[in-house]
Design a binder for these strands. Sequence first.
RNA 1: GCGGUAUUGGUGAAGUGGUUAACACGCCGGAUUGUGGCUCCGGUAUGCAUGGGUUCGAUCCCCAUAUUCCGCCCCA
Length: 440
Amino acid sequence: MLIKPKGTHDIYGLEAKKWNYVNGVIADLMSKYNYDYIRTPIFEASEVFHRGVGETTDIVTKETYDFVDRGDRNMTLRPEGTAGVVRSYIENKMYGDAVQPTKVYYNGTMYRYERPQSGRDRELTQFGVEVLGCDEAIIDAEVISIPVNLFKTLGLQEVKVNINTLGDKESRDNYRRALIDYFKPHINCLCEDCQERYQKNPLRILDCKVDADSEIIKNAPITIDYLNEESKKRFDEVKKYLTLLEVDYEVNTRLVRGLDYYNHTVFEIEAKVDGFGSNNVLAGGGRYNGLVDLLGGPPTPGIGFALGMGRLMMALDLEKIALPIDDGLDAYIMYVSQSEKEYAMSLAQDLRMNGYKVDMEYMGRSLKSQFKQADRLKSRHLIILNEEEMQNDVIKIKDNVTKEETLVGIDYILYYFEEKTSLEEVSDKDLEKYLEKEEE
RNA sequence: GCGGUAUUGGUGAAGUGGUUAACACGCCGGAUUGUGGCUCCGGUAUGCAUGGGUUCGAUCCCCAUAUUCCGCCCCA
């Protein structure tokens, strides 16, 4: 049997309806914030990610899907969204657009060659936002508020917003040096992974799980102490605006992020839901003022976040949040004979073109099965075709909630649905009156 | 990349080295000569992930591979 590749999922049925609903909520929310949708290629020249995400990051060194195309070009399936968006920003000279800053969002699949586990797949979907060309603290707060408000809109309560700052380049470099000096004498007391981190990315030692409780890490220098005046002021401003937006956040001085391009504000939003695995970060992001420059554009500030859609869906499920999925039918058309079948089909088309959600029997099963099917499809009305009744120009419609059956004139089916679906009840008398009026 | 776990029908699953692989749900049909959702009856796995091996014989034992789920690394 053919099976899907490791770490991928087929989304269909109810699950697909949920995704569509959430995607709709996102599109709606982004429209209100006036962020434009951007769609960039799923694969890019490998260089885009090597330069953009960082040569030393795990994402680039061991997790990319690389391939050489038939024209001998080195290509990579995108492992994240920012690098591609920034490449597009530069290539399309969006920095020259009349409207500034550039505010965009994407919602698409990413690919990472990883060992799948809870909350982690090889094909993942991320919704993300990027704002380019604005270095104001106010925009940092707005960007952080977007996922927070999305969760609020969806009814997801149990989340925690962590923020921190890495400061500008000068502050970050000072801090990095301080950490290296601090850890140097303790290096042998740290776990194996941390010893490696010490070489590659000392900042990451801070959020090590193994050594989290060790005094060495607890007493490590914190970023705030190494910020220059400007960076400190900036961070205070971000916090002020977050308070203004009523975003409930916590400063976590140990929060650093793995991607090389971050500076100043960084943040993560965790799910605090029972039953969530260890991969509980729903969204994460930060400021990347050097990235546009790095990828060959004019020096341009930027900030963004990415949100894991699969993890979001998992959180919604675990929290048992009922999404208002468009479910059920207005009518299900049932029949037995061939002539009824033909009428059923044209009636279905007629109702559908008039805006009703209609399904019908296709396979000529027993009437009993058709009733069952209609129930499964949660159909509000059952249209039961009968040759004899049709010869008398009437059709039987059963309201599947009240169980009331009505014989409706064959030319007045639409009227029945208009009234019946907008008003709670329409009596036979109403219909008679309507018919009389029509005749006049 | 490392460690652990599991893999029986459309679904949830029981089970044993040896004739027809429980049970339940679902589905289809019938009882009900065109009105169901209750009940009753019947049907529904060329077959126990795949490939090897051990054995007279394996779904059940061994090995490998694939995939699942969980943890680490890392990340959303």
